[in-house]
Nucleic acid binder design. Structure first.
Length: 408
RNA sequence: CGGGCUGUAGUGUAACGGUAGCACGAGUCCAUGGGGUGGAUUUAGUCCGAGUUCAAAUCUCGGCAGCCCGACCA
């Protein structure tokens, strides 16, 4: 991709109201456009990042047997009434043109919807277990959208639902989902703590959240410095300095962002909705369920919150919009050749080919956009050389062009 | 949803109730070319609606929006 082909542009200034680092850098870099508070468009750069995150999530969900599907955002009243979630004051109700009362809400979760689908196909224990997921836009009428992409009214979420014949089978899958989640967060460069938490509107049981430590987080968690056991303050009796209930290590308090969660729903929804299967003895039983969420857009924002410096973002290579940010300061013909060769080698390159920007501006933009590797071509180095610098490093070094491929 | 603060150009700011101005940005052109360079030139604004007034960015009321605190919260 050539910089001059991008229809977006970076900006130096941003509204003073934008206090969250993720909002500042993502907007300034041209990753997202803020349509309304908590409502964002993903621009070409941001969409590339989102797609990379989604690809990782898909890979890990597929590995544990998740089957991807796609459900409607419009959810009719009939789905949510049986579980008492129609009037929960969470959704945006779709405007109805010819009835006084709205009959659709914009989906903020999809247990009921998928269960309606599943009921068409599940009748026997032989139909279980299975799990299905989607990556879709969710809508929640947040009383207070804030912190950039961290708390939106509209956001991207991966929601997976699992269906089982027994509690034991659910918990077996629950463990595998946990491992898959930890893998996902690790792959996008984050350290996530598996945290015991309350279930909110989803289940009366305790559940688990995946928490990433960062000052902007809205949650408070207690983490053991020894075994990394963690509890959310909302259910915890711990306080900083306490002994870990698991290993007696010292517990510390941290602010954190909930990037994912897993709920052992059990039969909470299958009972009211009548989702049953016949077991081997011919007896009807409610399906045992779990649900598992990852906020894709929140995850993207969290990565920015954790990986940045005063100049901009430091994307991990796994989710960076491009691996390489190539800057031409002079001799565009020469740089063009390098660009073409990198592209032919399958390297994702953002080539800053602008001829009306100064070196300082190009460097500043490269730092802001945050691709892992910066390459610079200029008169200062020999024809067969190129300058390389990792975004995480302060100093650049000059290498021979023949060594370029091996250095990426 | 309660409380607080605030709405003037993309950003930051001025203007006694009396001509909406400045800087930066952005666009164009020229020069420049290793950390946001210099010059010329262009562009763009009083959140919306009522009211008071000869006259409203300014005063009043009502909306709406944004930010912060709290409550809430996959």
């Amino acid at each position: 991709m050539k910089f001059t082909q991008l229809f977006t542009r970076t900006t130096r200034e941003i509204s003073a109201d934008e206090t969250a680092i993720n909002a500042q850098y993502l907007i300034r870099g041209g990753f997202v456009y803020k349509n309304s508070a908590g409502v964002y468009s993903f621009l070409p750069l941001g969409w590339r990042v989102a797609q990379k995150i989604m690809a990782i999530v898909r890979q890990e969900m597929n590995k544990i047997g998740g089957q991807e599907l796609f459900m409607p955002a419009l959810v009719e009243k009939k789905f949510l009434e049986p579980t008492g979630r129609w009037n929960l004051d969470v959704g945006f109700f779709a405007k109805s043109m010819n009835e006084k009362e709205a009959s659709f809400t914009l989906g903020w979760t999809h247990e009921e919807v998928l269960m309606a689908i599943a009921s068409r196909y599940v009748s026997s224990y032989k139909d279980l277990p299975f799990s299905a997921y989607q990556i879709q836009t969710k809508f929640r009428n947040e009383a207070r959208a804030k912190s950039g992409l961290l708390r939106g009214r509209e956001f991207m979420m991966k929601d997976l639902y699992s269906f089982h014949a027994s509690e034991a089978d659910l918990m077996d899958f629950y463990e595998r989902a946990k491992e898959a989640y930890l893998k996902i967060f690790s792959r996008v460069g984050l350290k996530a703590f598996y945290t015991l938490a309350a279930g909110g509107d989803f289940t009366a049981n305790n559940t688990h959240e995946f928490q990433v430590v960062t000052p902007i987080g809205e949650d408070t968690i207690y983490i053991c410095g020894g075994c990394e056991y963690a509890e959310n303050k909302e259910i915890s009796n711990l306080k900083a300095g306490d002994a870990c209930p698991k290993c007696q290590g010292v517990v510390r308090e941290e602010k954190s962002v909930e990037v994912g969660n897993i709920f052992p729903l059990g039969t909470k929804y299958s009972v009211p909705l009548g989702l049953e299967f016949v077991n081997q003895d011919g007896v009807k039983n409610p399906v045992v369920m779990g649900s598992y969420g990852i906020g894709i857009s929140r995850l993207m924002a969290t990565i920015v919150e954790v990986m940045n410096d005063p100049k901009g973002i430091l994307w991990p290579e796994s989710v960076a919009p491009f691996k390489v940010h190539l800057i031409s300061l002079e001799q565009p013909e020469r740089v063009e050749k390098i660009y073409q060769r990198l592209v032919e080698d399958g390297v994702e390159v953002l080539y800053d080919n602008r001829d009306d920007k100064t070196a300082g501006e190009k460097f500043a933009d490269a730092d802001l956009i945050g691709c892992p590797i910066r390459l610079v071509v200029s008169r200062k180095i020999a024809e067969d050389e190129i300058e390389i610098r990792r975004r995480s490093e302060s100093a650049a070094r000059v290498i021979h062009l023949n060594d370029l491929a091996a250095s990426l």
